[in-house]
Amino acid sequence: MFKILCHSIYFHLINYLRIKQAVFFSLAFPIFLFIVFGNIWGLNQQEYVASLFTGVLGMTIASDGLFAIGPVIREYYASGLIKYLRKLPMNILSYFIGLIISRVISLLVVLGLLTVVSKLMFNFTPPSEQIINLIAGIVIGLFLFAFLGLTISFSGIKYGSEKGLINFVFFGVLFTSNCFYPVGQFNRIVGAIGDALPLNPILHVLRGEASGFIIVLWLITPIVLFSVLFRRIKFVR
């Protein structure tokens, strides 16, 4: 079981590393945004850099969770690959847990890269006591957004259209969040919407702040919805 899990992680990692676009958007692009925004507003403002650090990480967690898990699993169903996986003498969960762990590894690499760049460019590194918050934020956030992505992917909308909907959800969540600046200070309503959506609670976890009940709600709802939708999935020829 453990050997299969390890091989599954490796399997998904090499597959992911060969999708050049995915590597750019999950590794290089967050660093790029961190450098640009940090240079615009963060010079000599350690507080902003600290906030941007977790903001960029939060954005990457949301995009990885939404785009790299749900649509991928849906693709396995659409291509029929899932039928082979279900017939192999292994627990199919180990295959998909491998997928999730490979994404966690990718996010830990982003965290490492952000730390290095942050130290070199802005002379800022997150305090050691925040490391647990950052790792917890990565795991909880990925879990939450993965189930959100799965729920959208399996919501019964036409295959191929779900990516448009996930894009809409991602940018909606991102632009109302406090990833790059405190939105609530500019517009209270947008700020309130952002607080009700799942990214701000994840940012609270990453920043070591209290995140309230809303995170629990966002953790439970997609799982329940997905389990209901998943039971309804049928193969039809």
Partner: peptide
Amino acid sequence: FSALWYLHFSLWMFVIV
């Protein structure tokens, strides 16, 4: 997203900064 493209991208980022 080739190696040369990443060089271009890095230089671009450098110019922006």
